[in-house]
């Protein structure tokens, strides 16, 4: 697990108030929304905001790839690093 993935897992837990959950409970390939972790549309907005604040990047909610980037922790980490180096 990369440091960035761990940071994103902790961010998800803190920003979304996931009581009783630890970073190791969220596998990097666990689906975040709907199935898997079971997050909903309000969580999507909240997580988007938290990611933008923490990593200083812009997320276009309308872009068609955004949904793919938010699929799981691994895809989010890949997205964040690509934006930071961009």
């Amino acid at each position: 697990m990369s440091d960035l993935q761990l940071e994103i897992k902790t961010l998800i837990i803190d920003a979304l108030g996931l009581e009783d959950m630890a970073a190791e409970d969220i596998a990097a390939d666990l689906t975040l929304f709907g199935e898997g972790l079971g997050l909903d549309s309000v969580d999507a907005l909240e997580l988007g905001l938290a990611i933008q604040k923490r990593f200083g990047i812009k997320i276009d909610a309308e872009a068609k790839d955004t949904r793919k980037h938010f699929a799981n922790v691994a895809s989010l980490a890949a997205f964040v690093s690509s934006q930071q180096t961009a």
Binding site: L16, G17, V42, D43, L45, E46, L49, K53
Partner: peptide, 9 residues
């Protein structure tokens, strides 16, 4: 600061 969507909802 941007408003928290959760808090707002």
């Amino acid at each position: 600061e941007p408003l928290s969507p959760t808090q707002f909802s």
